[in-house]
Design a protein around this nucleic acid. Sequence first.
DNA 1: ACAAATATAAGACAGTCGTCTGACTAATGC
DNA 2: GCATTAGTCAGACGACTGTCTTATATTTGT
Lengths: 192, 192
Amino acid sequence: MNQQGLNNKELIVEAADQLFYQYGYSQTSFSDISDKAGIPRGNFYYYFKTKDDILTAVLTQRHQLIKQLLQDCENYSNDVKAQLIYLLEVLLRDEENIVKYGCPVGTISSELSKSSVNLQMQVTDIFETLRQWIEIKMLAAGLAERSKSLSMEMLARLQGVTVLANVYHDIDFLRQSIQQHKQWLTDLLNAN
Amino acid sequence: MNQQGLNNKELIVEAADQLFYQYGYSQTSFSDISDKAGIPRGNFYYYFKTKDDILTAVLTQRHQLIKQLLQDCENYSNDVKAQLIYLLEVLLRDEENIVKYGCPVGTISSELSKSSVNLQMQVTDIFETLRQWIEIKMLAAGLAERSKSLSMEMLARLQGVTVLANVYHDIDFLRQSIQQHKQWLTDLLNAN
DNA sequence: ACAAATATAAGACAGTCGTCTGACTAATGC
DNA sequence: GCATTAGTCAGACGACTGTCTTATATTTGT
C-alpha cells in the first residue's frame, strides 16, 4: 500500500467517523462518506469489503483515541485524584457536540445493541478499557474492593449526564454535572 | 372510522412500537411493520402519510404509558418516598429488554438527536413529564429549591445505569444499581 | 335500497441502498 | 524494461426503501 493509498483509507475512516457520530451508522450512506471524503464511491470496495468493515475501522480509531486520552491523563499528573478529574474534563471537553449528538461511544453502542451483536462487542471493549483504567486508579487510591463497582458507577454517571444533556440540549446542565462529578470524586478519594 | 379500522391502526402502532424499540427507527422498514402486524404495506398510507407519522403515534403512545405509570405511582401510596421508589421499580421492571435494547425513551432520543429535530422534541416532552412529576414529589418532600436539579440528577442516574447495563448486557448491575438508587432516595428524603 | 364515506388490498413508482465488476493508471520487484 | 501488484475510477447490479395510485370491498346515513 503506497502513501496515497494509506491517505485515502484514512480519509474514508475520518469522514465516516464524523458522519457516524452526527447522523448515526445506519443513517450514513456510502454516498455521504464519498461526498465528504472526496473519494469515488466505487473505490471504497478496494479498502473495505462491507459497510461493517468501515465501522470496525472507525471503532478501532475511537478506541485508540480513548487509549490516547488515558495516556494523556497519565502524563498530566502523578496524583491519582488529579488524573481522574482530568479524565472527566477530557472526556466531556467537546461540549457542543455532546449536547448535539451525545457521547460518541455511548450512542453507537445503543444503536448497535439493536442490530449488530458482534460489532457491539467492539464498543463494549472501549468501555472496558476506560473502566479498567478507572478501577486501577481507584485501587491505587485505596478504594480496594469497592473500586470495581465505583468504576461502573463513574461510567454510568458520565453516560447519564451525557444522555440528559443531549435530551435537553442543555450545555449548562452538562457543565454543572461535571462540577458535581468532580465533587463526588473528591469526596470519594479524600474519605479514604 | 369503524371498529375494524381503529383496530388496524392500533395493530400498526403496536407492531411499530416493538420494532422501533428492538431494531431502532431507521432500521425498521414498512415491510417489517407490515409483516409483524399482518397488514398489507400498501394499506399503511391510509392511516399514516409518512413513516414519521407512525413514529409520532408510537411516541404519543409511549408518552401515554409514562403518564399511566405516574398515575400508578400516585395510586400505589400516599407517601412521597414510597411513590418515588415505586417509580424506580416500575420504570426498570422490564429488566431483560432494558439489558438487550436499552431505555425505550432514551435510545429513541439519541437516535433522533442525530437526524430529526422536530421529532426529538416529542421525546424531550416525555422526559419533561417524568422530570416534572419527580420535581413535584421532591418539593412535597421538602427538598425546596434543590428539587429541580435533583430531578435531573435522578433521571441522569437512571439513564446512566440503563446505558451501562445495556453496554455490558449485565442484569445484575442493573439490579444492584436500582438498590443503590433506592438508598440514595432514602438518604435524600430522610435527611430533610 | 341506494349513495356516500370509510376501509382494505395489491402493486407500481422513482429513488437510494450496499455491493460488485471491469477498465484503467501508477508503482514496485526482479 | 517488463511483469506483477497496488491503487483509482466510473458505473452497473439487484434488492429494498418510503410513497402513492388505483381498484375493490365494507360500512354508514338517509
